[in-house]
Design a protein around this nucleic acid. Structure first.
Length: 279
DNA sequence: AAAGAGCACAACCGCACCCGA
DNA sequence: TTCGGGTGCGGTTGTGCTCTT
């Protein structure tokens, strides 16, 4: 379909803004479920919606898309957001990839409305503790233990902070019998002996199997689910399972129970592998 | 009961990037 | 190589609800 400048101007004038009505939602949802979105700018034309394509896309991604979780964030999700924000900053879309069913917009809003304040409070408490320690008046016991416990500086957060220095919480890694795969984007390459896996999954598989269970590996940047055509089914053939281990080791976190085939690069995600067992 | 302050969430805007012509 | 359209992302704004005074 070709639009003349006049057509485009007319379309622009017609575009509705503001909240979506249930009727608009229904039209958009049923159309996309039936035909897929294709080119977003053609969606309003095909559905008769007086919205621009961008607005349709946003509505679909943030609200209508199947599989979205609604409602409160769990403690685990909060911890994940805080931890990942420490590492990734305001990369909401990347953070959202770690939280299946949550959108970047939802996480961003949650951060601005709640978590940011919580972090600020945590910093404030820490500053107080530091001051008191510096002054030789260690009165930490006066601080609420529960308030400290609820901060991200326990559990996973601490471990990620450790990663910046020593990369691995050695005590924990020694205690853990599981083999580990560390990913390049989070970690400095020169601090590890890099195993070149060449982006080949069979190779990765062989390397993994050939090592003792306590060895760590660093997956190189060429490991890409798309370019190397590693499908979800193939992932399931592996003699490992992906586990959510973030709170245990601080090393990794990923996809409990499933592998997200939509992610571009596995190496952007840290995760830990354990020996495979049938669930 | 009314006003307004605060909050949560949805949606918009602008910019950057990618890709095809 | 350049340009324009499409898309994705992060920041910001708008709106409606709830709570407080």
């Amino acid at each position: 379909m070709v639009f003349t400048p006049l057509d485009k101007q007319k379309q622009k004038q017609k575009h509705r803004k503001g909240l979506w009505s249930p009727d608009e939602d229904m039209k958009l949802k049923s159309y996309i479920l039936k035909h897929g979105h294709g080119c977003w700018s053609s969606v309003p034309v095909n559905t008769g919606l007086q919205r621009n394509g961008k607005s349709c896309r946003l509505r679909w991604i943030n609200y209508l898309r199947p599989g979205l979780k609604r409602g409160m964030f769990s403690i685990t999700e909060e911890e994940k957001i805080l931890t990942l924000h420490q590492i990734l900053g305001n990369k909401w879309s990347q953070i959202a990839q770690h939280l299946p069913g949550r959108t970047d917009n939802e996480i961003k809003n949650y951060w601005h409305s709640y978590l940011k304040k919580r972090m600020a409070k945590t910093v404030e408490i820490e500053d107080r503790v530091k001051d008191e320690c510096t002054n030789g008046q260690n009165q930490i016991s006066e601080l609420s233990p529960s308030s400290l416990k609820s901060t991200p500086h326990n559990s996973s957060y601490d471990s990620f902070e450790n990663m910046e220095g020593s990369l691995i919480d050695t005590d924990q890694s020694q205690n853990c019998n599981l083999p580990k795969v560390l990913f390049a984007e989070w970690l400095s390459l020169d601090q590890f002996h890099v195993q070149d896996m060449g982006g080949n999954f069979d190779h990765f598989n062989n390397i993994f199997e050939s090592q003792s269970s306590n060895d760590s590996f660093l997956m190189n940047e060429s490991f890409d689910t798309k370019s190397n055509s590693v499908s979800y089914d193939e992932m399931l053939q592996l003699p490992f399972k992906f586990e959510d281990q973030i709170s245990e080791s601080g090393l990794v976190d990923y996809f409990p129970g499933e592998f997200n085939i939509n992610c571009d690069h596995i190496y952007t995600e840290g995760f830990q592998l354990s020996n495979f067992s049938e669930e």
